[in-house]
Design a protein around this nucleic acid. Structure first.
Lengths: 174, 174, 174, 174
DNA sequence: TTTTAATCGAGACGGTACGTCTGGTCTTGAC
DNA sequence: GTCAAGACCAGACGTACCGTCTCGATTAAAA
């Protein structure tokens, strides 16, 4: 059985919340691990016990936030509504997503986490809307859409309704 | 007339060369402006007189390198050959491109330079291969292809022959 | 009567032993309370239940060790033999004594313990060898000898036979 | 010739002054290198360029301070007046001297500096007052007096007029 | 026998100092 | 005024240690 004092889930939550608040307030680059720990009323060591660094922490903070969106409809959502929702979320979180993807380019481990927690799940959601397509087409469409969105993010161009229309037009021609 | 000692073009070249060498040897993140200056036999101040920081310097060093590829054929190149060439270059320089795009997420000015010196020119080359398409389609195709490539880079997946076939298959269905 | 589980004397001994071993192996500064607890198979809390900190613990560990020297002769020992024995012990334990006296400068409580457990008893032993002196002289001699020894320790100079001769020469001139 | 920007003596002075002030205000243990750098308007790196750590810095700060005492009399000072002056200085700076001697027990380099900058010079001053003594006696007296003073410091006992009388009584009997 | 309460090992916790590192600016004398 | 050299300010970084707290298990006296 696990011995020693168990890890305190409340502390973990407090750090995640603090990270989220601070990143939204001051932006990813301006936040330090020390800031987060202080705001959370935690020690730096505790933060580093749970996460290897700022990137992984902020990723956790926001991948939970993104998941907040209710997935309660039992009916398979349409591609267009999924894409709209997708872009809405990405647009709100754009600065964080850009920073995380950027940081991940310098950090192998963060890169893996980012793919597993954000990139892949979004792709899976899209794929789920394409069950009526031929399997070989599915990957095409998912890649194209995901590529368009990430490019848009990295080039800091708006993920607005016009973009959604554009993307849908691309898809219906494939 | 400008007074004082004139700026030394040889120094500028030496810094660019040193930056290129060091980034290829140790990777973007592991190189500092001080390293580059030392290798080039230059002072840090000289480096900062010509460039605003590491990002812009490395961008210059490698955008020249990318342009090295001879564009001498007067015949309009085909889309597929352009894409092959495009991916070959991107694949070789992938670590640098990833790092520059990442850095640009934290640096407005570098972002502008990157778009102007790397992103836009590549898009223009692609566009030039699509003159037989309807104008509205052109932007579609350019966006999709560029999105696929950048996504591939940022996700650190190979830009190999298989990817080129995949991309061409997408395009011919639009 | 005391309720609850009684304190375990075996644990106390294990911690003292572990502290002694570790300090002899790695030196006072390189040992942490966590190290000692781990070596003793004890928890940190147990250690802190018995002692207020590393200093007091090590002091206990070594003041017992110093006392090991048999004081069984019923005849009053001579000053010179006492001093020889005194210096021999201080020389062996020099690194620990230096560290304890140093730590005591930053820790009021440890300072009191150190004086009570090490400084005063040694002075009393010396005083006991000087019963044939005039009372006012006794304090003089004890202070001078003790001062010479502690200075020698703190300046990291050898407490060897030559020093003993030197000290005795001083005393016989007072 | 020396190239590069020369070290800035003004910064060095500012750091020394800040160290002195802070140590007098808050005590040695409560002062950090970051505090000193901030108060001095300097960067931490600059501090570490000039000194290897807090100990060496504070030693410099106070060894200059101790030397401030005017040594202008051309006549050889008497032993008693030297001792009085000696004890007055040591008494004022007692907390710092205790801390430095303590820290030096954990830091070989600081130990050497402390002996060279504080312990030896004081000894030399005493020796200079004893030119009328036999050479072999001189070392005796210097050692005894210095031992008495340092012991007094480390045991945190007052270096007052009574102590001076005591010390002089010892000396005149040697 | 059951309850109670202090102890035990293990290790997470808040706090904080440390010394290193990087980025971008400033200051020399030489040219 | 530019150059090489390198010191400068600023502050983030991750590690280390301290002494406390929390957990489930153990132990013996009290009920």
């Amino acid at each position: 059985m696990r011995v020693g004092r168990p890890r305190d889930e409340k502390v973990r939550r407090a750090i995640l919340t603090a990270a989220q608040e601070l990143v939204l307030e001051k932006g990813y680059a301006a936040v330090t691990t020390a800031d987060v720990a202080k705001r959370a009323g935690a020690g730096k060591q505790t933060l580093y016990r749970w996460w290897p660094g700022k990137g992984a922490l902020v990723l956790d903070a926001f991948s939970e936030w993104v998941q907040q969106a209710p997935r309660l409809s039992r009916r398979k959502p349409s591609l267009s509504s999924t894409l709209v929702e997708f872009c809405r979320g990405a647009s709100e979180a754009a600065p964080v997503l850009r920073a995380l993807m950027a940081e991940a380019q310098f950090d192998e481990d963060l890169h893996r986490r980012l793919v597993a927690q954000l990139v892949r799940p979004r792709g899976d959601e899209l794929r789920a809307c394409l069950e009526d397509r031929r399997p070989s087409d599915r990957e095409l469409v998912v890649n194209v859409l995901s590529g368009l969105v990430w490019q848009r993010l990295m080039l800091n161009e708006p993920l607005d309704a016009q973009f959604v229309r554009f993307a849908l037009r691309v898809v219906e021609r494939i």
